[in-house]
Amino acid sequence: MSEPIVEIKDIHKHYGSLEVLKGVDFSVNEGEVICLVGRSGSGKSTLLRCINLLEKPDGGIIKVFGQDILHIKNINSYRAQVGMCFQQFNLFNNMNVLENCVKPQLKVLKISKAEATEKALKFLDKVGMKKFASADVRTISGGQKQRVAIARALCMNPKLMLFDEPTSALDPEMVGEVLTIMKELANEGLTMIIVTHEMNFARDVSDRVVFMDQGRIEEEGTPKKLFNNPESERTAAFLKASINK
């Protein structure tokens, strides 16, 4: 077996006196789809954000694509290889849908505008947003925004995608359109780490579910094992509460 794409060893993170990550070990293999679940405040976002260095851990080792990212030279070109989608979409409001996908490519990948546009249209088509290419991003729905955000990330050819509650800010009728696309990406073999409260999705799509509790990984395993035979009481209690919601 090849070595994991992401290898995290004993990372810690404090905000002031609050210890948010209390020694997390975690690894992800190529092509794996991981769902990260847990209560609010358990450190899921913080862990995800450490992986693309939006936060810097206070201690531990993070190796991604075989390199130690905490001592990396070119952070920007590293980040370009790790896509991230946020709960609030975070599209650029001064650009239309197409420009949102083209601009970062021009700035970071330094390719020609024609090439960037072609790629952008390809991915916008993939998420069903091609015909909205010239739309102002402030005028489209939440589900459409998240699909554009996914296309924008895909344009950078990421080898790993991080999703932080991509559907939590959406109206219920729009959740499906976003999850459908994520499922498609999973089936295509993209490596993904997804923080989510959508338990049905986690059960159906992920190769492994990781349950975080109070800054630690309490339990991880295949969805089948975690949902049917959890080892830990806490995991069982959490999953029971989330599924019956």
Binding site: R138, E177, L179, N200
Partner: peptide, 23 residues
């Protein structure tokens, strides 16, 4: 006013598969 509604008018969005309802 450049925040215009530049959406295609009557066309609806073609991704309608609802993952949850299918489930």
């Amino acid at each position: 006013t450049t925040v215009r509604l530049s959406l295609p008018s009557s066309e609806t969005d073609n991704i309608t598969v609802n993952y949850l309802s299918k489930k």
